[in-house]
Nucleic acid binder design. Structure first.
Lengths: 356, 356
DNA sequence: TTGAAAGCGCTAACAC
DNA sequence: GTGTTAGCGCTTTCAA
């Protein structure tokens, strides 16, 4: 009978997809008011244990599912995080972001939050901004900050919390923005040093695309390692690519051409290093005997290559978890003991630099 | 002044995150009613061109952003798709699902839909079902149908549209369910035939986990290829694994042990084939000289292995796109000319089966 | 072509 | 502890 009631209530609307039990239904059944039901279900301490038990039990039996649109409308919160990840080619299909998103997701879901994704240059261009639904998230996680990132002022006027993956380059935004980053400079220095310690003096380098803060920091690390070892950086030893594996392949061919005496090769990320392994195989160079190879990031697939890839591992998953944690704390208005986190890298020495 | 008004309106609530222009604000400014604004913005044909122009212009100037919670509450639609992908180890971190999700996402975002994800055995067990937010999606895409899939009856009572990735095994659900699938049997037959044509007669097989329709279909393809070539299937040539790369590695070691005369190896998916490449390298077997290897799926990473992986490529991304398209059409009530799609595979012959 | 008014399902002051 | 009431911002009858 109640069901009939619900159905008729709904039939006024054309596009009804399913009938469902509402809070009002529960209230009627339990013989209490809607507010009592709401309070019972939301753990309000003022409700008596007895009432709460009855209501929860009833909700279970009647398969009550709260309408999150309604409660969102009332509370003005969505319990969703908005993730802005790069547009192709560095999206989702980049294992790095995949692992990052897993970290965010695992934590967020555990805390009762879901996620909206959007890729692309959201928020950067003048008029266009976030897709409507994504914009309703309670806060945002953004990736790949650029120097003087145009998104920061826009986010500020938005008045919603946000966290960056990667530290913004300039001192001002760096200070006021909340961010999580891997130790790019330190990690790169460590892995390049490893190559140097193996005796390599002629080290090629596939530098990442310019304009990203991470690129600058990794470059700093590379120069620092070279300097400490007293190595001059030969311009012929440097190629620039776009952080994709295809780019890494092309850059490697370029280096083999213009810097044939190279005995080791460092790429600014693992994907490009994997491209390098491919290019070297095609050119019949043995790794690591002819050319030792190392990357940066520590993506899972590096381990599956043969030879497996030497790299500086960022704690990617952990960075995602932490970003989510910081964002949710902000959303809830909880205090942050620390606003900036630089997580250190771990050197993973594998077959591409040291023959087994 | 309007802003002040809005602010005071909101200050009744504690957790206000941002003030925003509402439809009522627009109406007041434009000197029309809320309904007119709504209609103008939603393209209702009854509105005069002049009014529509004025309203849209005003909305733009005032940076009006519709509150999707409110319209969702009113229309009972969320403009979101719910994706149920497998629980670990076959989630997101499986490149196959990654590519699939990209296909879904690209199409969905383009159509103004976002996505909710959930992994795991959602909808299968008795009590537990979808996470609340995910449950509010306008429709669902589900993966990995099982024989007599328990989710189908539950979805039906849900009365929301859904699309399966993979055809349900039994004739009944197969007919009534909307699904997109790769040609498992045909694809496997094709790639095994390729190994046979290379002269291999002793072909090991890493079969996928039982209970999945895809496993059964791929097995059919394998048997069919063997039969056509007049090969008896030696039970020692078969190992079973769980579709992960680790599983593939272990299964390969098992086969090397119990079926040492094997000259070729087919795995039910690329990830296991990649595990096989690893295990073979560790056991100092040359690929393809000692053992030729082939997989199934056509994940991107197969191309990056050395040797690169021979496989039957499913149009994974395209399957995602199509699934999203079918779902959105259903949600909008548009007719479907076809309810079942079996997309054919393409044989990709690479270095793991044929030395270059 | 437009407006008034009722409601979508839920939360949160404010009373009692 | 619990009920009453007034919205949250939008859509959609119904009437004009």
């Amino acid at each position: 009978m109640e069901v009939l009631k619900a159905r008729s209530r709904l039939q006024k609307y054309k596009k009804v997809t399913s009938i469902s039990v509402t809070m009002a239904d529960l209230a009627r059944w339990a013989g209490v008011s809607k507010s009592t039901v709401s309070r019972a279900l939301n753990g309000d301490p003022r409700i008596s244990e007895e009432t709460r038990r009855r209501v929860t039990e009833l909700a279970r039996r009647l398969r009550y599912r709260p309408n999150l649109m309604a409660s969102g409308l009332a509370t003005r919160r969505t319990n969703a995080l908005g993730l802005v990840i790069p547009s192709p080619p560095r999206t989702f299909s980049n294992p790095f972001y995949l692992e990052f998103v897993s970290g965010v997701g695992d934590y967020a879901l555990g805390q009762g939050y879901t996620m909206f994704f959007t890729t692309g240059e959201a928020l950067t261009s003048g008029e266009e901004d976030l897709p409507p639904l994504v914009a309703q998230a309670d806060g945002f996680i953004l990736t790949e900050p650029r120097l003087a990132d145009p998104r920061i002022p826009r986010l500020r006027e938005w008045e919603k919390p946000y966290v960056f993956l990667g530290s913004p380059g300039d001192a001002a935004s760096e200070e006021e923005t909340i961010w999580v980053d891997g130790d790019n400079a330190g990690g790169v220095e460590m892995v390049v040093q490893h190559l140097i310690e193996l005796g390599h003096r002629r080290i090629g380098c596939i530098k990442g695309a310019p304009g990203y803060v991470a690129t600058e920091n990794r470059w700093t690390g590379f120069l620092s390692a070279a300097e400490k070892a007293g190595l001059a950086v030969d311009p012929r030893a440097i190629a620039v690519a776009d952080y994709t594996e295809e780019g890494g392949r092309e850059a490697t061919c370029e280096l083999l051409e213009k810097y044939p005496e190279m005995t080791a090769l460092f790429a600014f990320n693992d994907l490009m290093a994997i491209g390098a392994l491919n290019a070297l195989a095609i050119n019949e160079k043995k790794v690591p005997e002819d050319v030792a190879v190392a990357g940066f990031d520590g993506i899972h697939f590096g381990r599956l290559m043969s030879p497996s890839l030497t790299t500086a591992e960022q704690p990617i998953y952990e960075m995602g978890r932490l970003a989510a944690e910081l964002l949710i704390k902000q959303i809830k208005g909880e205090p942050l003991e620390n606003k900036h986190f630089t997580l250190s890298c771990r050197l993973a020495v594998r077959g591409s630099s040291v023959a087994r």
